[in-house]
Design a protein around this nucleic acid. Structure first.
Length: 571
RNA sequence: GUCCGCGUAGCUCAGCUGGAUAGAGCAAUGCCCUUCUAAGGCAAAGGCCGCAGGUUCAAAUCCUGCCGCGGAUACCA
C-alpha cells in the first residue's frame, strides 16, 4: 500500500467515526505548497456543505478521531477547512530503504491483481514505410503496456498490423500498371510508397481507379492467385522493413503481431452472427450496416455493397477473438482521435453481442501534423520515422562532441540520448494535445527532456562511482538549514513515485509519470548544487547523502525504463 | 449544418476527478565551475487561463452561449 492509500484508509475510518453515514469518496491530494504538508484532504469542506456546518469544526472532529499512528507526524487544519498531513521523516527514510533494497523492482505493485489487459498499439498499415506519426501510438502504447505490467496487470501487447483491405487493391493495381519487378526487389518499401502515391495522384483525375482498386481487393479476398502472391510479397517485405525500424527504436516488444489477415477466415462467421441477430441490417445497395439511435452517429458499414469486408468487419471479428481467447478485463486501443466516433460505433455495436461486456477502451491521442500541410502518406507528405531517428542520433552526437569529447562509446551514447529524447518528447506531453511536427522541438536536448534526466542520472552515478574510490577531505562549514531542506524535498518525493505510477496507469497518461521524474530530477539537481555528498561533515552524514543519491538514481532508472528511455552512467 | 477535441507567459506546453499565492522549458536579464559531470544550479522578469454569462464557501478546472483552430460526419483505415 502506498502512503497515500494509507492516509486515505486512516481518513475513511476517522470520518466514519465522526459521522455514521458517509459514503462519499474521500480524495487525498498533494498540497500545492510544502508548508501545507505532504497530503491533504478537502473532505471537511464537502461535508460542511452537506451538513450545513462549519467545515473547520468538522475538520477538528475528524482530526480528533484519527488514531495515533507512526505514519503521520503531524495533522493540521488550514484555510477554509483543509486537513493537512505531515509524514514523519522516519517513514520517509523507511521508504527510501525500500528503494535501496528492491532496486530495479522498486516500481512493482499488485495494484492490477494479475487481471488481463490487452494493449493494441502501433498497428501501422503496411506496404508503406513507418512515418513519424507512427511514433505516437507505438511509444504511448508500449509505455502503457510497461506501466500496467509494472503495477501488476497481466498485459498482452498486440501489433494489429493493417495487412488487409482496399489499400492492397490499390497497390496491386498500381504494381500491375506501373510496377517493375527488379526495381521493387531492389528497394521494396520505397517503391511501394511510390506506387501508392502515384495511384492517388492518378486517381484524383480518374476516379474510376478507385473502383478498379476495390475490384483488385475483392478478387484477392476471394482467392485470386496472382493477387495473393503479390500480397504475400508486399507483406513480407514490409514486415522486414518495419521490424528494422522497431529495432532502432528499441524497447518495442509485441507479444503478438497479428495482422488483419489473421482474421480472414473468421469474418464470415461473425457477419452471419450479426445478421442473424439483426445487429447488422441491410443498408443501401445490398451493403450491411449497424444503426444507432444517436442521430449524431452515422451507421457503421460492416459489409460493402460488393460483399467485401472493411476495417470494421475485421475489428469486430478481432474483438470477439480476443475476448474468447484471453478473457481480458480490458482491451486498450491506442489509436489517434480521428477515430473517436469509429470506436464509439464499434463498441456500441459490440454491446449488442452477448459475448461483449464493455472491455473495449479507446486510448485516443492527438494527431501529429506538419506546420504548413497535412501529413498524408497518400500524397507522399511523409516524414520517415527512420530519418527522424537518424537525425536525433546525429544531433546528440554533435552535442557529445562539444561537451564531452573524451567520452568512450560516443556512438552508443548518442543513440541512447537521441532515441530517448524523441520518445520522451512524445511521452511528456498530454496525449490529447495535437503535435505540430518540428525538428527542433522533436529533437530538443535541453529543458524537460530525456537528456536532462539522463544527465541527472549520470551525475548521480559520478558521485556513487567516486564514493568507492576517491579519498576526499571532509568539509565542516555547511549551511544546515539549506541542506536539511534540499534533502527533505527529495525524501518527500520518494513515496510519490509509485503513487504517480498508479495514477498514470489509471489515466492511461504516461506524461504523469514523466512529469514526476522531471520534478524529482529538478530537486536532485538542486540538491546536487548545494549539498556536498562526498565531503559531507561526517561519515554518518556522508553515508546518508549517498543513500539519497543512490535512491534518486534508482528511481530515475526505473521510471525511465518504463518510458522506454535508457540511462547511461557517463555522458 | 451536427458531433468530438483543443484555446493558459513572446514561443512550446504542464495543471482540468473544483481547492490554498496559476507552473515548467525555450527565448530575453543578472549571478554561480580552486567542491561530487555547467547537457547543471540560483535570482529576477514575464499571465483579463479565448470572450461573455451561470453554478459554488471556492472555477484555468463544472454548465450554457459565442469566437478561433483541428478532427469526424456509411461502403478508406
Amino acid at each position: 500500500m502506498t502512503i497515500k492509500e494509507q492516509i486515505k484508509s486512516i481518513l475513511e475510518k476517522a470520518v466514519k467515526k465522526t459521522l455514521k453515514n458517509n459514503s462519499d469518496e474521500i480524495s487525498v491530494q498533494y498540497p500545492s505548497d510544502l508548508s501545507h504538508g505532504d497530503y491533504a484532504t478537502n473532505i471537511a469542506m464537502k461535508l460542511g456543505k452537506i451538513m450545513q456546518k462549519n467545515p473547520r469544526e468538522i475538520a477538528e472532529q475528524i482530526v480528533k478521531n484519527i488514531p495515533k499512528n507512526t505514519l503521520i507526524e503531524k495533522v493540521g487544519i488550514a484555510g477554509p477547512g483543509f486537513i493537512n498531513f505531515f509524514i514523519s521523516e522516519k517513514n520517509l527514510k523507511i521508504e527510501m530503504a525500500k528503494v535501496l533494497k528492491e532496486k530495479a523492482k522498486y516500481s512493482k505493485s499488485n495494484e492490477g491483481k494479475k487481471k488481463t489487459v490487452i494493449v493494441e498499439y502501433s498497428s501501422p498499415n503496411i506496404a508503406k514505410p513507418l512515418g513519424v506519426h507512427h511514433l505516437l501510438s507505438t511509444i504511448i502504447g508500449q509505455t502503457l503496456n510497461n506501466i500496467l505490467d509494472a503495477i501488476g496487470y497481466k498485459t498482452i501487447s498486440i501489433n494489429h498490423i493493417g495487412d488487409w483491405g482496399t489499400q492492397f487493391g490499390k497497390l496491386i493495381y498500381a504494381y500491375k500498371k506501373w510496377g517493375n519487378k527488379t526495381i521493387l526487389e531492389k528497394d521494396p518499401i520505397n517503391e511501394m510508397l511510390k506506387l501508392y502515391v502515384k495511384f492517388h495522384e492518378v486517381a484524383e483525375k480518374d476516379p474510376s481507379l478507385e473502383d478498379a482498386a476495390r475490384k483488385e481487393f475483392k478478387d484477392f479476398e476471394e482467392g485470386e492467385k496472382e493477387n495473393r502472391k503479390l500480397w504475400e510479397w508486399f507483406v513480407k517485405e514490409s514486415l522486414k522493413d518495419m521490424n528494422k525500424t522497431y529495432k532502432k527504436l528499441s524497447g518495442i516488444k509485441f507479444d503478438y503481431t497479428l495482422g488483419e489477415s489473421f482474421y480472414e477466415d473468421k469474418m464470415d462467421e461473425l457477419l452471419e452472427e450479426g445478421k442473424k441477430k439483426k445487429i447488422f441490417v441491410e443498408g443501401d445497395e445490398g451493403s450491411y450496416i449497424a444503426k444507432f439511435d444517436d442521430e449524431n452517429m452515422s451507421p457503421m458499414v460492416v459489409q460493402k455493397k460488393d460483399g467485401a469486408t472493411l476495417y470494421s468487419t475485421r475489428d469486430m471479428t478481432t474483438l470477439k477473438y480476443r475476448i474468447t481467447r484471453w478473457k481480458p478485463e480490458k482491451i486498450l486501443y491506442v489509436v489517434d482521435m480521428a477515430q473517436n466516433m469509429y470506436f464509439k460505433q464499434l463498441f456500441e455495436t459490440a454491446k449488442r453481442f452477448s459475448w461483449y461486456k464493455d472491455e473495449g477502451f479507446h486510448v485516443s491521442f492527438g494527431r501529429m501534423r506538419m506546420e504548413d500541410m497535412q501529413m498524408s502518406t497518400r500524397k507522399g507528405n511523409i516524414i520517415l520515422l527512420d530519418s527522424v531517428l537518424e537525425e536525433a542520433i546525429k544531433r546528440a552526437k554533435k552535442i557529445i562532441e562539444e561537451k564531452s569529447p573524451n567520452l568512450k562509446n560516443k556512438d552508443k551514447i548518442a543513440e541512447i540520448v537521441g532515441i530517448g529524447s524523441v520518445k520522451y518528447n512524445i511521452l511528456s506531453q498530454n496525449r490529447s494535445t495535437d503535435i505540430v511536427f518540428d525538428w527542433d522541438k522533436m529533437l530538443s536536448l535541453e529543458g524537460n527532456s530525456a537528456p536532462y534526466l539522463q544527465y541527472t542520472y549520470a551525475r548521480a552515478h559520478s558521485i556513487l562511482r567516486k564514493a568507492k574510490t576517491a579519498k576526499v577531505s571532509v568539509k565542516t562549514d555547511e549551511n544546515k538549514n539549506e541542506i536539511a531542506e534540499k534533502i527533505s524535498h527529495i525524501l518527500r518525493m520518494i513515496p510519490k513515485f509509485k503513487e504517480q505510477l498508479i495514477f498514470s496507469a489509471h489515466e492511461y497518461k504516461p506524461n504523469l509519470l514523466s512529469q514526476y521524474l522531471y520534478e524529482l530530477a529538478q530537486k536532485f539537481n538542486s540538491f546536487y548544487n548545494s549539498v556536498p555528498v562526498l565531503t559531507a561533515k561526517n561519515k554518518k552524514e556522508k553515508i546518508f547523502r549517498l543513500q539519497v543519491t543512490q535512491s534518486v538514481s534508482q528511481i530515475l532508472k526505473n521510471g525511465l525504463a518504463l518510458l522506454g528511455v535508457e540511462v547511461v552512467e557517463e555522458m
